[in-house]
Every structure is written in C-alpha cells, then in structure tokens.
Nucleic acid binder design. Structure first.
Lengths: 158, 158
DNA sequence: TCATAATAGATGCGTTTGTATCTTTGTCCA
DNA sequence: TGGACAAAGATACAAACGCATCTATTATGA
C-alpha cells in the first residue's frame, strides 16, 4: 500500500494543481474584463437550463453545491446588480423563484465568451485532441462512479 | 469554435467537479480525525523535502502557491500549535526559517495516512488501474506544458 | 384537526481571506 | 558611499465564508 499511496498521491496532486491552475486563469480573465466571479456564470447557466418557471433558491443550491447562505447572498447580489429577478411563487409561500434578466443574460454571454477564451488558451492549448478526449472520458466515468456510490455523506446535506 | 467550446467546457467542468469532490472528502476525513486542514500537510511535506536548513516563508509561499499573508498566518498557527519552529537566519535579517518539530512530523504522518485512506476510498476506487495511469500521464504532461508556457501572469507574482 | 416535525430562506456572529500598506533590510549603481 | 529601488514579512481593514440560529410555512400522523 505504500507504493500505491505514492502513485495515487502524485496523480491526485496533479489533478488538484491542474484544476487550480485553470480556475485561477479563468477567474483572472473574468476579473480583468470587469466581470463577476465564475459562480455567477454557473448560476446563470442553471437558470437558463431551468427555463421559464425559473429556479427556487434551494434548487440552485443543489445544482451549484454551495452552502445555503452562500446561495442566499449570491442571489442578493445578482438581484441587486439587476441581473436576476425575484418572483413570488404561489404554491409555496416560504420561497420564491429566480430568473435571469436581459442584463443578466448579456453578462452571462460575455462571461461565457471570456471563459471559452481562457480555456482555449490555458487548457486546450496544453492538451492534444486525443488527450482531451481521453481526459473527458475518464473524468466522466469517474464522476458517475463516484456519484453512484459515495454521495451519502456530502458536505452539503444537513 | 462553438462546438469546441462545448466539449472543452464539459471536460473542464468535469475536472473541476472531480477535484472538488475528492478535496471535499479529504478535508472531511481530516476534520473528522481532528486533524488540521490539507494545506498543513502540503506545508509539512515541503518542509520535509527541504531538509535541515528549513524553508524561508517566501520559499514556502512559492511552493504552496498561496498569498503571502496566507503563509504568514499559516506559519503563525503552525508555530503556535508547536508543530513548527522559527529559526533566525544570519544571512538575511529580514527573514527567518521554519522547520517542523517532532510533534509536527507526527501530525504530518497521521495526516498522510488519513489522506491516503480517503484517496483510496474516494479516488482510486472509482478508477481502473489503466485509467489512473492514463490520467496521471495526461495531467503530468498538461502541467509541464502549462508551466513551460503560461506562467508569466500567475496570480501570485506581485 | 391539532401538535410535531421538517423545509425554505434569512440573518447574526466569529473566522478566514484577499488587498493594500508599512517597516525593515538587502541590492544595485551612479 | 549613499540614495533609489526591490524584496521579506507583518498587519490593518474590508469583504467573503461557514456555522448556528431564527422565522415562516408546509408536511406528517396520531
């Protein structure tokens, strides 16, 4: 197990380093373009995917895997910036729904463009086509395998 | 570019999700065992690698890719916990040197064991041997390629 | 139906983080 | 040699975060 530990460790550290390398570049590109942080884009994408009825905050929370107060405050800011809209929802008076505004969708698009540019430069550029495909494939299987088994004790179910 | 963007995006998101999935599990395992956060282990490992003279805080900063104040405070805590030791250094009176104490090395070992256990359960278990090898290989090439080119504007050089 | 439990969401509070700045010391070169 | 500039490290301050808690509403079930 000592030998397995070493190899495992190395590949895990590479995974972590690669991720933070790319994430840092994307965040820097967004900040450089005067755009909000990457979570906003994830939120916009979820809202878009959800379509017309919009999303309940708790649904967005699960999609983004954030703490509940984090979503609460994120939505505060998005609404405060005029990029998301709060709608009352009839069937549950505890909650409400969010949708993106036109301004929000515009920002979403600019963020997406910036992200793709950063990914092209800092991610794709360092992988061959074959490597990119293989990586995607392995990670896809990894994620479905891990989701199938070990999701009982995630940090976000309280 | 629209099509390239979509595939790139998907694989990047998978990379990010896989990393945070594993990182969350390791952090949870450490916390569950009453051990410090993962950065401490990275710091211990760097100190060990550095050997006797120890490390200057700025060297540790570069190794860990953290903000300078973060390292300053991390070392505060490690020293405060009796797990690291501050030594004056003669050749530069602006700075000093850190080394791990026996207590620190003991904690390092327990953390390493905990980490390997978490990796075995939450990382290795979801990959075949071949996938693990391929992943390691691709990420290794990715990292050296990215380090070779795009390290001019990292977020940590001020 | 009414009491109890569970869920949605907000907020208060202590901690952590990043940014900027400050002090001290070392380096460079005219 | 001295005077400007750069580097090491600490710290002040504000923003962000996590945890716990609170209120309001819905679901459960005796």
């Amino acid at each position: 197990m000592a030998e397995i530990g070493k190899k495992t460790l190395r590949s895990w550290r590479r995974l972590a380093r690669a991720q933070s390398f790319v994430a840092d570049r994307i965040e820097a590109a967004l900040k450089g373009a005067g755009l909000p942080a990457l979570v906003w884009l994830a939120a916009f994408d979820e809202l878009e995917k959800a379509g017309e009825p919009g999303l309940r905050p708790f649904e967005l929370q699960r999609a983004l895997e954030l703490e509940q107060p984090a979503v609460s405050r994120l939505l505060d800011k998005m609404i405060g910036a005029g990029m998301a809209e709060r709608r009352e929802c009839d069937d549950d008076r505890r909650g409400w729904t969010v949708t993106a505004t036109d301004s929000g969708r515009k920002t979403q698009e600019r963020m997406a463009t910036t992200q793709v540019a950063a990914l092209t430069e800092h991610y794709l550029a360092h992988l061959s086509d074959k490597q990119a495909r293989t990586l995607d494939e392995i990670l896809g299987e990894f994620l479905s395998s891990s989701r199938a088994s070990g999701n009982e004790n995630s940090k976000n179910d309280h």
